[in-house]
C-alpha cells in the first residue's frame, strides 16, 4: 500500500490493521494518522475484539462416523458378488482371522432359497381356454358374414327401390287405365286339382273416358290390388287357404307398364272354390271390368260362375 493514508482510505488500512496485514511502517503511519484524527480511531481499542472466535464445542459422535464395521459391508458385498478388486483384497486380508471366516460363512448361509416343494395347485384355474380356429373355418365365417351383409344390402336396395317405384307408380298410373286379364290355366300335370290364375295388369293408352277425374283415377289406381298386389292380396289369399297355395309376382323390367300377378290356385271343395270366386269378384269391383284373353275366357267364365 504505497498511497498515503487519508480520510477516504483510512478504513481499508484499519481493516488491514485489525487483521494484522500491515507491515510495521504502515502500522506506524496508520497510528500517526489516527493520532492526528483521534475522532476516527476512538473505537479501536483492541483489534482482537473485532475477530469472531469459533466455538470450541465439538461433535461428540465421531466414533459413529468411523468405518469400524467395514467388514460387514465387504462380506455382504461378497455374498452379493459386487466386490471391487480393491475391496476383495481388503476382505482377503480380513479373512486371515478365523472369526472373520466364520462370519463370512454365516452371511452366505443367510442367503435365502425358495422351497421348491411349495407349489401352487390351482394353475388350471388361472389358465385361459385357447380357441383354435382353422384357417378354412375363418374363411368360411368371413365369406358367410360377407354374404349376409351383401344380402342385407341387396334386400335394402330392393325395398327402397320398390318404394320409389311405387311412389313413381302413383304418378305414372294417374294417367293410365288397366287391362286386367284373369285367366285360368289348367295344370297340365293334374288338371283336376290345380289351376293357375294370372292377373295381368297392363298399361294401355291414357284414353280411358271413365277416368276423367284425376283424383278418382289415382284412387282407383292406388287400390291395393293394382299397385301393391303382394302385400294386399296376400291377406285375402290367406282367407281362402288352402286353396291358394302360392302367390308370386313376376316383375317385368318396365314394372309400370306391365305387371303380372300369378296366383296358383289349387282346386278345392265347393266352399273353397266359392271363396276364391268371391275374391275374384272383389278384384273386379276394385279394378273395374276385367277383360279376358279370348283363348282363356271360357275357363275364367267357368270359374266365375
Amino acid at each position: 500500500m504505497n498511497r498515503m493514508i487519508n480520510i477516504k482510505n483510512y478504513e481499508a488500512y484499519l481493516l488491514d490493521y485489525i487483521e494484522g496485514n500491515l507491515d510495521s511502517s504502515q502500522e506506524a503511519e496508520l497510528l500517526s494518522f489516527l493520532n492526528r484524527h483521534p475522532e476516527l480511531g476512538k473505537d479501536i481499542v483492541d483489534p482482537d475484539s473485532y475477530k469472531i472466535v469459533p466455538p470450541t464445542t465439538g461433535y461428540n459422535n465421531n466414533e459413529s462416523l468411523k468405518k469400524a464395521n467395514n467388514h460387514s459391508y465387504l462380506m455382504i458385498s461378497h455374498v452379493e458378488k459386487s466386490l471391487t478388486a480393491f475391496e476383495q483384497r481388503e476382505l482377503d486380508s480380513l479373512l486371515c482371522d478365523d472369526a472373520m471366516k466364520s462370519e463370512l460363512e454365516m452371511y452366505h448361509r443367510c442367503k435365502l432359497s425358495a422351497d421348491s416343494n411349495i407349489k401352487y395347485y390351482n394353475k388350471n384355474k388361472l389358465k385361459k381356454a385357447v380357441v383354435f380356429v382353422p384357417n378354412k373355418l375363418k374363411y368360411a365365417i368371413a365369406a358367410t358374414i360377407a354374404l349376409v351383409i351383401i344380402s342385407g344390402l341387396a334386400i335394402n336396395w330392393f325395398i327402397e327401390t320398390s318404394a320409389n317405384l311405387n311412389q313413381k307408380g302413383l304418378a305414372l298410373y294417374s294417367n293410365i287405365d288397366f287391362e286386367k286379364t284373369l285367366h285360368r290355366i289348367n295344370n297340365p300335370d293334374n288338371q283336376n286339382t290345380k289351376s293357375i290364375v294370372e292377373i295381368n295388369t297392363a298399361k294401355t293408352k291414357a284414353n280411358n273416358t271413365d277416368c276423367n277425374d284425376q283424383n278418382n283415377i289415382i284412387k282407383k289406381v292406388y287400390t291395393p290390388v293394382t299397385l301393391l298386389p303382394m302385400s294386399k292380396i296376400k291377406p285375402k289369399i290367406i282367407e281362402i287357404e288352402p286353396c291358394i297355395a302360392q302367390l308370386k309376382t313376376r316383375e317385368i323390367p318396365e314394372l309400370y307398364e306391365y305387371q303380372t300377378i300369378t296366383i296358383t290356385y289349387k282346386k278345392g271343395n265347393e266352399k273353397e272354390d266359392n271363396n276364391f270366386r268371391d275374391y275374384f269378384n272383389k278384384l273386379k269391383d276394385i279394378n273395374g271390368p276385367v277383360k279376358l284373353l279370348k283363348s282363356q275366357k271360357q275357363e275364367l267364365l267357368s270359374l266365375n260362375q
Binding site: L112, A114, D115, S116, I118, K119, Y120, N122, K123, L126, K127, K128, A129, V130, V131
Partner: peptide
Amino acid sequence: TKEYNKTVEQFADKVYRFALSLTGNKHVAE
C-alpha cells in the same frame, strides 16, 4: 393366450412362494 398359459406354468409356483414368504399366509398368498 398360449403364452399367457405358459407364464402360468412357469411362474405361478414362484409367485406363490414369493407371496407366501412375504405375507406368511397361505390364503392371502393364493
